[in-house]
Amino acid sequence: MKAAIIVESSASTALELRDAPTPEPGPQQLLLRVKASSLNRGELLPSGKPGARPGGVEAVGEIAACGKDVKGFAEGARIMARCKGGFAEYALVDASEAIAIPEPLSWEQAAAVPIVFLVSYDMLVPYGRVRPGDWVLVTAVSSGVGVASLQLAKALGAKVIGTSGSSEKLEKLRALGLDAGIATRGALAAEVLRLTDRHGADVAINNVGGSIFPDLVRAAAYRGRIAIVGYVDGSLEAPLDLAAVHSNRLEIYGVSNRLRSAAERAETVAGFKRDCLSWFADGTLLPLVDKVFAFDAIADAKAYFDRNAHVGKVVLTM
């Protein structure tokens, strides 16, 4: 089968197509005939470990085979899931990660769901405890996780402020319900407090990294929650105003797909199915696909992705 490999040098990554053997499912796994996948910044950033590794952390497609102990799934079913090696004609999926694709979604739309919406669900529901009327601040709101967080927060009844270096991107996202946009990182906290009539952000999502963290602490509401999910600025350290955390009773938590146990991942998938899947079926949530590339043009897809011109997800089709 054809598969794409991430080749990492000392300072960059590239995607290369290679031949690979078709995998065999284990007892609790599904073999997926991949129809589409999508690019995610986290796996394409240099990890500090030069070499080659399978590409793709999510995929959608039809079940080609089921492991001997799998229950509740059948060959031919349409599913979407987080996985390893999703940039390939076939991929293995743990049955506990598999999610039936709601009927209205195309392959391309479904490919824009697993990673970003599961991360957003984790941040906003079990940890963020977002309620109707809350203010949610989403930094880098035009990113994949940013757009999904905007959409999910609106479905939960929240008011959303988004940040971006591009006024044009913010304007595009008003169609998805963005209540206010901040087109600069300067004076971020002051602008959030102004927009919320001094209330602050009940939940703040840090998609950027350490450079923006002090502003999020200053922008947080009393009993506010701050989620840390990305480091696109490359900054892994930031000063911490302990007095603000203490006096405002703030909660700070990290959200990561990579470091979670299988049981934790399965718990998130089960909660997402219970709380959110019907919103894709009735049109409340519609994944935002920016551009679609054929699998053979995966190098072009990465070049486009690296230019950071997209709003939402960049998708590959097989």
Rank of each mutant, 00 (worst) to 15 (best):
S149Y: 08
Y121E: 02
G234I: 07
R53N: 10
V93R: 02
K84C: 13
G200I: 04
L285I: 14
L170E: 00
G162C: 02
I99V: 15
E97A: 15
E264K: 12
W135E: 12
G224D: 06
D290Q: 03
S120R: 05
Q151T: 03
L193H: 12
E264W: 12
Y231P: 01
S256C: 10
D197C: 13
K273N: 08
D202S: 11
G271A: 02
F73M: 11
G26H: 09
Y222S: 14
P126I: 05
R194L: 02
S106C: 07
R265M: 13
A52M: 15
A11D: 15
D122M: 11
G224E: 10
D290L: 08
I101P: 01
Q109L: 11
A262S: 15
D241H: 05
A309T: 06
G230V: 06
V145N: 07
D241L: 00
H199K: 15
A140E: 04
S164P: 03
I228C: 14
L173C: 09
V311K: 06
T13F: 02
I226E: 04
D179Q: 08
V208D: 08
P239I: 01
G72H: 05
A243E: 15
H246W: 15
V269G: 01
I115C: 01
L250D: 01
S120K: 01
V192A: 08
I182V: 15
A64T: 07
L236N: 11
G55C: 06
K159W: 03
A100D: 06
S106A: 09
A244R: 11
V147P: 07
V311F: 10
V7A: 09
G133Q: 12
R53D: 12
V217L: 14
A52H: 08
C66Q: 08
L316K: 04
L31S: 05
A270H: 05
T268H: 09
G146L: 00
